[in-house]
Simulated assay, not measured.
Amino acid sequence: MKNKYRILKIAITVIILGFLLSFSLKKFSGQKITDNKISVKMNEKTPVYFIDEKDIREIVKKENPSGKVGDLNIPALEKKINNLPAVDSANVYLNLNGKLNLDIKQRVPVFRLNKDGRDFYVDEKGVEFPISKTYSHPCMLVTGDVQKDEYQKLAELIEKIDKDDFSKKYFIGISKNYKGDYNLLTSEGNYKVEIGDLDNIEFKVKGFKTFVEKYLVYQDPQKYNRISVKYQNQIVTTLNPNFKENDSILNVGNKELTKASIVPAAKKITETQPKVTEVKKPSPSKPKENVKPKAVTKPKETKKTEKKATAAKPKAKVKIE
């Protein structure tokens, strides 16, 4: 009898609890999700504004037109928000008091890439997402045919630039040329800093910093067209042809090149002079009869030519030696 009474008591308790639970669930599912019961939190460390709280609330209303808790499909709403290009992750859940919570993390651009006439952002994970019509995030601009497998190294390079006060002051952009070499665009002057590949970045930036502190600070930044640090243990500079002070330097260089091209021709002339003088030199073995015709036609001129020939003899010997 005692066991039967105990079983009956448990059964009645379960029925009562089930009734109360179903009643509370029915009442809970009929509640309205008002604006004050929607909590939207953006959890990114760096503030970005590709989407705002207003956008999220509009999505909630579209997914749940009735506004009732029972009609809300939480997994579908969460998937809808996660599919937004600028959203990295989203977590949607309900409290027992009927409050809807949305924890959202937006993508933070590391750089903006201009490739094949198309602009888009790339985050720290190497994920591409489109630019916004209403918001532009300040970040490094990169141009050129950058491949996806280079995104990670580019992100590391930009992170190092942002953390270093010197680099952050000088470098405002990155470009990749048709040869595959990377160049850092500077805020001073029109010159580029050629770094080649994305390896040994710290060493290359350190070399440029040394060049700036020990030499470039005493020069006009417009003087150079390119400063290359891609070679190991050396810095190669290219002068700007449009800079007026470089005109004299470039002209001197051109003159040196022309001199170098003229020198072989001058040597040939000096070598031929002794030969010419040797040909004009009268041979002692020739008879006097050969000399007479010249003396008859132009007696005065023959004497002069003989004097010139005799005078040219020591000079020809000196040049030959």
Rank of each mutant, 00 (worst) to 15 (best):
Met1Ser: 09
Met1Phe: 06
Tyr5Cys: 07
Ile7Tyr: 04
Ile10Cys: 07
Ile15Asn: 06
Ser22Asn: 15
Ser24Pro: 01
Ser24Leu: 10
Leu25Val: 15
Leu25Gly: 09
Lys26Phe: 15
Lys26Pro: 05
Phe28Gly: 05
Phe28Ala: 05
Asn36Met: 02
Ser39Trp: 04
Ser39Asn: 14
Glu44Gly: 12
Val48Asn: 00
Ile51Trp: 07
Asp55Asn: 10
Asp55His: 06
Ile56His: 00
Ile56Gln: 01
Ile56Phe: 01
Ile56Lys: 00
Arg57Gln: 05
Lys62Gln: 10
Lys62Asp: 11
Glu63Cys: 00
Asn64Leu: 02
Gly70Asn: 04
Ile74Leu: 09
Pro75His: 05
Leu77Ile: 06
Glu78Gln: 10
Leu84His: 10
Val87Trp: 03
Ala90Glu: 06
Asn97Phe: 12
Leu100Phe: 07
Leu102His: 07
Ile104Val: 14
Ile104Pro: 06
Lys105Leu: 03
Val108Lys: 02
Leu113Ser: 04
Asn114Tyr: 11
Lys115Ile: 06
Asp119Pro: 03
Phe120Tyr: 12
Tyr121Met: 03
Val127Leu: 12
Ile131Ala: 05
Lys133Ile: 02
Lys133Thr: 03
Lys133Asp: 06
Pro138Asp: 07
Cys139Tyr: 05
Asp145Thr: 11
Gln147Ser: 13
Lys148Cys: 04
Glu150Ala: 01
Ala155Arg: 04
Ala155Ile: 09
Ile158Thr: 03
Asp162Glu: 13
Ser175Trp: 01
Lys176Cys: 00
Asn177Thr: 01
Lys179Asn: 09
Tyr182His: 02
Tyr182Met: 03
Thr186Arg: 07
Glu188Cys: 06
Gly189Ser: 02
Asn190Tyr: 00
Tyr191Pro: 01
Glu194Lys: 12
Asp199Ile: 00
Asn200Phe: 01
Gly207Asn: 07
Thr210Phe: 06
Thr210Gln: 09
Val212Glu: 03
Glu213Tyr: 02
Leu216Lys: 01
Asp220Ser: 08
Pro221Gln: 01
Lys223Gln: 14
Lys230Thr: 12
Gln234Thr: 10
Thr238Lys: 13
Leu239Cys: 11
Asn240Cys: 11
Pro241Met: 12
Asn242His: 14
Phe243Leu: 14
Lys244Asp: 07
Asp247Val: 14
Ser248Lys: 15
Gly253Thr: 08
Gly253Ile: 04
Thr258Asp: 08
Lys259Met: 13
Lys268Ala: 14
Ile269Arg: 05
Pro274Ile: 08
Thr277Ser: 15
Asn290Phe: 15
Val291Arg: 15
Ala295Pro: 00
Pro299Glu: 09
Lys303Leu: 13
Lys304Leu: 05
Glu306Arg: 15
Lys307Asn: 15
Lys308Glu: 14
Ala312Pro: 04
Ala312Phe: 06
Lys315Ala: 14
Lys315Asn: 12
Val318Ala: 14
Lys319Ile: 13
Glu321Gln: 15
Glu321Leu: 15
